[in-house]
């Protein structure tokens, strides 16, 4: 067994000290040592987003972070999302039926919170691009995207987006995959010849 190290960090606003092996991921320590099992393991190598947490405010895959790297950093997990009652995103997910099995849900919510922090009024395409790192196998994403856009609208109406009004530049599609892929129509609106 290798030597363990002491790590001092802040999790969901509370100072937390834990002991871990350097090879343990943040995901594993959150779940197995700290009992914060809301963060899920879906793939263990950064390809599904179920383990998304905020590290110093930015969404990351906690399976791709060594727990020792959390020294002195701030972490927010799904358990830290609801403050006074549910976060508007959580409420919107419930009302839109944006979850089925619920395994990807914590990762989506944390990721979506970061999206709305950075882009309080995302377009559908922006939301899809931002959330592309979160896989869902149950919903086909339709209700998730609707819930995120609805939550954004509600937060705007409530003014709860607060200071987060960063310049909201559209991230134009930059793939070589399809010309003007960002112009993809959504179902519900008629597909018209260009």
């Amino acid at each position: 067994m290798s030597t363990k190290v002491i790590v001092e960090t802040t999790i969901n606003g509370v100072p937390e000290t834990f002991v871990c092996e350097p090879r343990q991921t943040l995901l594993e320590v959150l779940r197995e040592e700290l009992g914060l099992t809301g963060t899920k393991e879906g793939c263990g190598n950064g390809n599904c987003g179920a383990c998304c947490v905020l590290l110093d405010g930015r969404p990351v895959n906690s399976c791709l972070v060594l727990a020792v790297e959390a020294q002195g950093r701030e972490i927010v997990t799904i358990e830290g999302l609801a403050a006074d009652g549910l976060h508007p995103l959580q409420q919107a997910f419930l009302e839109h039926g944006a979850l089925q099995c619920g395994a990807c849900t914590p990762g989506f919510l944390v990721s979506a919170k970061a999206l709305l922090d950075a882009h309080p009024r995302p377009t559908e395409q922006q939301a899809r691009r931002w959330l592309a790192g979160n896989l869902c196998r149950c919903t086909g994403y339709d209700k998730i995207i609707r819930a995120v856009l609805d939550a954004a609208e509600r937060m705007q109406a409530d003014g709860s987006a607060g200071e987060a009004a960063l310049a909201d530049k559209a991230e134009a599609g930059a793939t070589g995959n399809a010309p003007q892929s960002s112009s993809r129509p959504t179902a519900g609106e008629e597909v018209r010849p260009a």
Partner: peptide, 15 residues
């Protein structure tokens, strides 16, 4: 700039 917005996902780009 484009490459930096394409690598992996938003979560990966943050790391």
């Amino acid at each position: 700039h484009t490459a930096c917005t394409l690598i992996g996902s938003v979560m990966v780009q943050n790391r």
